[in-house]
Design a protein around this nucleic acid. Structure first.
Lengths: 221, 221
DNA sequence: GCGCCCTTCCCCCGAAAGGGGGAGACCCGC
DNA sequence: GCGGGTCTCCCCCTTTCGGGGGAAGGGCGC
């Protein structure tokens, strides 16, 4: 039995979800709240597996509530519900520890299977938004759009390739495997990278890659 | 009719996929290739809607092939197939413009619906990997409130000190000089850092430091 | 006092990395 | 053809790293 909590400031919407979920044999709505703060309060006294959380709410929004809920060890997982598409709010909620998100017009069947997935430890993303999520994810590459020649001065394509893999923490052997090269070749390329950039070892290569924006921390945009 | 191309160096796997897809009324396998370069060549002469692309292949891997294919305006969408789970390769492919990825052991039903989704402009992600994708996407905010001692799990003050210097690209000898310690001591501390954080070498320490926000690009120095 | 952890430093060892040189292959421009 | 650049791979070598011990002092709590 999956114990679900509904958090949304719209009474009608909660009613609708309650009816849909009530019809399921393995799902049980055990709690409700109309805003984030109330939700956090209620959760102190009720055992819940999955929280269906609206993003935009009065008093405390879904992002902050998600953060507080996820800060507790062994607390429930949070599935974000949003009226509109993927927006900054949703991204913030994901960063706050949500297990995924759905649009509120999700077909009941999909909602239930999403709850089961989240309960099982998986994450879910509204299909219509997956593309945009990936796009957003893909933005993380070399400083906006292309590899500017200036930053990596006279490096060849192969050398840059090796550089980036070094910057991901791979050993020469691993890079060789990934690029299907001999380790000797990787060493040759890396040696030239070190010489051209005036670096001493691979640790400095990693530093350079981050500082030059060739590699971007996944936390930041 | 959705025109599909199969790109994989394993003949048997292509055969299996061809049979599964051939049974679908709205899907048609119109081309095949055994490596990325061949795929790009073939695509110059054949109209394709969706490319099912293996990642690891000889000659040219799926990442580079995806990049080339997606560089063409109005070209086909690319769906990545991977044997293993989410790895650096898959991330690279997504960054290169892939519309998503599936594990090769995907149930036929899911494969077909994924192809339809991709053809319709949506993206798809293997359900088992969605959670990890979101983690990777969302995890560690840049420790906005400063670096609290507990953040780096069980590291001692001295270990964190060494970690940061490693993350600046210093050698053990240089760190020893700066902290006025013997190099042996630095090695001891660093060894514990590696063990506690599950890292292999100092290059991975640098990666960790940037990803965890212990070191921030530009502020370097 | 005793145990525990942190810190400091030492040994030895094997593996990985960095540096030197050389060489064959390819492509491209002259 | 001939040179330049890139990519590939090999040899040799020294240094650095990382991992396995061990050991000694200090602080802190019980």
């Amino acid at each position: 039995m999956i114990r679900v909590m509904l958090v949304d400031d719209q009474e009608l919407l909660r009613t609708g979800f309650r009816m849909v979920l009530g019809a399921q044999p393995d799902v049980e709505v055990v709690a409700e709240a109309a805003d984030g703060r109330a939700a956090v309060e209620v959760l102190r006294g009720v055992e819940v597996d999955v929280v269906l959380m609206d993003v935009r709410m009065p008093v405390m929004d879904g992002v902050e509530a998600t953060r507080l809920i996820r800060a507790v060890e062994g607390g429930p997982r949070v599935l974000i519900l949003t009226t509109f598409d993927l927006d900054e709010y949703v991204f913030a909620a994901l960063k706050a520890g949500a297990s995924g998100f759905l649009l509120k017009d999700v077909p009941p069947v999909d909602l239930v299977s999403a709850i089961r997935s989240v309960h099982g430890g998986d994450a879910v993303v509204a299909p219509s938004a997956t593309r945009r999520l990936l796009e957003r994810f893909a933005v993380h590459l070399p400083a906006s759009g292309g590899v500017e020649p200036g930053a990596v001065s006279g490096l060849t394509a192969r050398e840059r390739e090796v550089l980036v893999l070094v910057a991901r923490g791979l050993s020469n052997a691993e890079i060789a495997g990934r690029l299907e090269l001999a380790e000797a070749t990787v060493k040759t390329h890396l040696g030239r990278v070190l010489a051209k950039l005036g670096l001493r070892d691979r640790a400095q290569v990693v530093v350079f890659a981050y500082e030059a924006g060739l590699v971007v921390p996944h936390s930041a945009g």
